[in-house]
């Protein structure tokens, strides 16, 4: 900022033009999206994956979600006892687990509160839809995302 100095008249104008000319001759820093995919960082909150096996229908995530966009229904199922002669176990099974991504705020609270490691973030981002209702991802879709959960990145040594 040399606004106090005496400057050659209109020097600012020419310097600006020189800068744009230089930029024009440099290659543009552009990722050609559909052909070249940008690699999101591992922690990116792209979409939530669900591990159906791990979920115990405890409803914590649905309750803590700030805009209540997780819809869960489940029922109790009798299961054979783990050892012969034991009491039959009761296991909660999911009937419905939908996340409405048109409402989701991508805050991560649901992942954080799940006590059974059933929810994960994955950095996938290509699930835009022409119709808003299609943004309601059901159990199958959420399970599909499970394959894309990245490993945890190494940490900065402190």
């Amino acid at each position: 900022m040399s606004d106090k100095q005496i400057r050659f008249p209109f020097r600012g104008l020419w310097e600006g033009m020189w800068l744009t000319l230089k930029t024009m001759l440099k290659p543009a820093p552009v990722t050609m999206y559909p052909q070249v995919q940008e690699e999101p960082v591992p922690r990116a909150r792209g979409v939530i994956a669900l591990d159906v096996e791990a979920c115990t229908v405890c409803m914590l995530c649905a309750r803590e979600c700030p805009d209540w966009c997780i819809y869960i229904e489940g029922h109790k199922e009798e299961q054979p006892p783990s050892k012969p002669g034991g009491r039959p176990r009761v296991r909660a099974t999911l009937d419905r687990f939908d996340i409405d991504y048109s409402l989701c705020m991508y805050c991560g609270i649901c992942v954080e509160v799940c006590p059974f490691d059933a929810l994960f973030w994955t950095p996938e981002y290509e699930y835009s839809e022409p119709k808003i209702t299609n943004l309601l991802h059901n159990m199958d879709k959420l399970t599909y995302w499970l394959g894309t959960v990245p490993d945890q990145p190494p940490l900065e040594k402190s």
Binding site: T20, A28, M32
Partner: peptide, 13 residues
């Protein structure tokens, strides 16, 4: 084209 390259873009492609 010139405008977008001056801005560090590619422009029509």
């Amino acid at each position: 084209k010139a405008g977008s390259h001056m801005q560090g873009r590619i422009g029509p492609y």
